[in-house]
């Protein structure tokens, strides 16, 4: 709004302010548009356009096979809302989110506190705790599928050596989700760890020392000083982690590929299966949008909580 009026103001008198003037604001011109144009063009082509065509496809029976498509109104949306697979995969995504966010945040925090205290090991600890995060997901799943292997895997082998029973970590419905959560924690807790670590190292040492002089033990210092100072970081970590967990697909798909998948099929995988395995581009677009709605709702709720905390 303000931008536009100022442009008009500038244009109305034929000779506006002197160019050499030390005005705090530069005059508006089209130059800036040239700077943003390349990005905006890509943005329009690869984000805005598919967002709109996706909405369009959801109203048609567009097929991957390229068969002629027709307008079907809200049929896809009605079908999606009544499709038990949509709800079960959405539930899987939400269960995964609920199960994975706490360990991902707490493990990240724990590792950061350890690193912050045991400074002499700093380099080694940073490497150990963060290294998994730089691994490609397929490497992570190859390693963990092998670790979870019945009979000969590391975990079951160790359990057997201890005289304990075997667990079919990935094929038993009761454990498959937990196994994926454990792997995810190992893989990506390093990110939250870095955020916490950066925050911890931003706390001036004097704060601790003052508390120590007051006679606070290390546990009291943690509870009374450190954790309250980390509140903002925790809010940030929670926001990022929640959205990241909602978008789960890679490791779940790769770890339980070819297995009875209903128990660990996230909603994105159902989108993939409907659209590409089942050819139904139109229907998959409608399901995508249902998921989109969930993410937006989650973001709004978080934004509200987050901004309240900021105050």
């Amino acid at each position: 709004m303000t931008t536009r009026t100022s442009t008009e103001d500038a244009r109305a008198p034929s000779l506006p302010e002197p160019p050499g003037g030390t005005a705090p604001r530069r005059p508006a011109s089209w130059t800036g548009l040239w700077f943003v144009l390349p990005f905006v063009a890509c943005y329009a082509l690869f984000l805005v356009w598919p967002t709109l065509t996706g909405l369009g496809y959801s109203l048609t029976d567009q097929s991957l096979s390229g068969a002629p498509a027709g307008f079907v109104g809200l049929a896809n949306w009605q079908e999606a809302l009544a499709d038990p697979n949509v709800w079960s995969s959405l539930r899987n995504t939400l269960v995964f989110t609920a199960l994975s966010v706490p360990p991902l945040v707490l493990v990240g925090l724990g590792m950061a506190l350890l690193t912050d205290r045991a400074r002499r090991l700093g380099w080694f600890l940073r490497f150990a705790f963060f290294a998994p995060f730089v691994l490609p997901v397929a490497v992570v799943t190859l390693i963990w599928v092998w670790i979870y292997q019945p009979g000969i895997g590391l975990i079951n082998g160790t359990l057997a050596a201890l005289g304990l029973g075997e667990v079919n970590w990935l094929t038993d419905e009761r454990f498959a989700m937990l196994s994926v959560v454990a792997t995810t924690t190992w893989w990506t807790a390093g990110f939250n760890y870095l955020l916490y670590l950066a925050a911890l190292q931003g706390i001036p040492r004097e704060v601790h020392e003052a508390a120590a002089l007051d006679g606070a033990g290390s546990w009291q210092r943690l509870r009374g000083v450190t954790l309250p100072l980390l509140r903002r970081t925790t809010a940030l970590v929670l926001v990022l982690q929640l959205v990241a967990s909602l978008k789960v697909f890679d490791q779940m798909y790769l770890m339980t590929i070819g297995l009875p998948d209903a128990a660990t099929r996230p909603i994105i995988q159902y989108v993939y299966e409907s659209g590409f395995t089942g050819f139904r581009i139109g229907y998959a677009s409608a399901v995508s949008y249902l998921f989109f709605a969930v993410v937006i709702v989650a973001s709004i709720v978080q934004f509200r909580l987050f901004s309240r905390k900021e105050d």
Binding site: I257, Y272, T277, F279
Partner: peptide, 16 residues
């Protein structure tokens, strides 16, 4: 490719 859906999906997407 892995037998079943993973193969058929890649097949269809590649052909599309």
């Amino acid at each position: 490719y892995l037998w079943g859906d993973p193969f058929y999906t890649k097949f269809a997407m590649g052909a599309a």
